[in-house]
Amino acid sequence: MTKELTDICNNRIFDGVFHKYAKDLKRHLYFKYNDMASAEDVLQETFIKLWNNCAKVTLEKVKSYLYTLANNAFLDIKKHEKVARKHQKGFVNYNKSESPEFLMIEEEFLVKVEKVIADLPEKQRDVFLMSRMEKMKYKEIALKLDISVKAVEKRMRNALIIVRAQIGNI
């Protein structure tokens, strides 16, 4: 019975491990790569490897196992990039410094923004989270909160002004 509950080869346990650690691991990977697509790829790869070695890993050690796998994958990718860059010497990426795609988001900055959002007045925060995080349309938010679209717009605008003011100088 206890064996069953700690066996990662068990589908339900595996899913539990995934839900418990995947989000944090993805975040960890994102700050390593500063790229969401790579983070997502390595995250999948890491959990596939965990499944293939599920019998060898105990539930107590699964967190450090996952992070070790993820970090190793990161090193592998960096090695590969180094080789790839060698062969692409002739190409220059002009966009790199200008495009917002390559803006570095440091973990501290992200945590700061998160805190600012969390500290928003409740009405503004709900609208902000639905709009910016859940990508809901103003009309949908209005319906859900049973307020007018105009009111949603107003709350959102206030939220943005507060967030910008709270972040301060960058």
Partner: peptide
């Protein structure tokens, strides 16, 4: 940068 951070938070918080 702030705008991008919003997007990153959104993606990191999105259900997996």
């Amino acid at each position: 940068k702030i705008n991008k951070t919003f997007d990153v938070i959104s993606e990191l918080e999105a259900p997996l």
